[in-house]
């Protein structure tokens, strides 16, 4: 394939560059500065509106000038690859977390708050469905627990789920906070704050489909070197039932046919 840039391509890149950054790029021939400004404003506002609805807390807690700077930096510098507009805000998160010239007034929690807000949105969009035969009422100790496919587990250095204009942590927590987000049976985004042990259990279930609930708990107990495994067992068994009530666990699988889920 030829890599030569055609005159059409050159004109297209010139127009797009000028739309992204009218201060530093001249519009192509035939396009006035006034009409370039119309395009810049339309396109930029489309990005801004979408990002403000995807990251409402972030938008609320940073200075308006910083927000403007972030959105225009993203609009100018980043090249979005998803054709699906509802997934565009995910690319803002990618851009925020990549090495870039950060602004002085950017709070340290910013990338983690963005990850949490995207996660809350992502669980609503996730098309994955459970790919294993499951029984809703299965005994969760004897069967392989099946998680709701939208479940996302994250560990944060800041209490991102409590950040609000009146609560802006300036230092990291001494112990990280474990959060789970998922789409519940009512198709709403729900979240759980987890203890480190609960988080480890959930992560193990997510990563190892062929183990029963009892095997997961045993493994956790030996990993922790728990002095009284039977105590952990009682606690964890009750926890699994609670997860099913909340819709984090859909049920249990007793089949040996262990097809993997489709994550998108």
């Amino acid at each position: 394939m030829s890599t030569k840039v055609t005159s059409l391509q050159a004109a297209q890149y010139a127009f797009a560059n000028a739309i992204r950054d009218p201060g530093n790029h001249l519009p192509p021939a035939g396009v006035s500065a006034q009409r370039l400004a119309v395009y810049h404003e339309l396109f930029f506002n489309n990005f801004r509106n979408s990002l403000e609805s995807a990251y409402p807390v972030l938008h609320d807690v940073v200075e308006p000038s910083l927000w403007e700077e972030l959105v225009s930096g993203f609009f100018r510098e980043h090249r979005c690859h998803t054709p699906e507009f509802p997934r565009m805000p995910r690319e803002f998160l990618d851009w925020l977390t990549l090495p870039r010239d950060t602004q002085e007034q950017e709070p340290a929690f910013l990338p983690q708050l963005a990850l949490w807000e995207w996660t809350e949105l992502e669980v609503l969009l996730d098309p994955a469905i459970p790919m294993r035969p499951l029984r809703i009422d299965a005994d969760l100790l004897d069967s392989q627990p099946v998680l709701v496919p939208s479940l996302r587990l994250h560990r944060f250095d800041y209490p991102v789920h409590r950040i609000a204009p009146g609560y802006l942590p300036d230092a990291a927590l001494s112990e990280p906070v474990h959060l789970a987000a998922y789409r519940n049976a009512q198709d709403e985004a729900a979240f759980l704050e987890l203890s480190p042990v609960s988080a480890a259990l959930l992560q193990n279930i997510q990563e190892n489909h062929d183990m029963t609930g009892a095997e997961h708990i045993d493994q956790l107990a030996s990993l922790m070197g728990h002095p009284r495994p039977e105590q952990l067992f009682t606690f964890a068994a009750a926890f699994l039932d609670e997860l099913r009530d909340k819709g984090v666990l859909l049920g249990g699988c007793t089949s040996t046919d262990n097809g993997d889920r489709n994550h998108v």
Partner: peptide, 11 residues
Amino acid sequence: CGDNGHLYDLI
């Protein structure tokens, strides 16, 4: 609707 990235609008 873009250069080497999507701009999600019509040029």
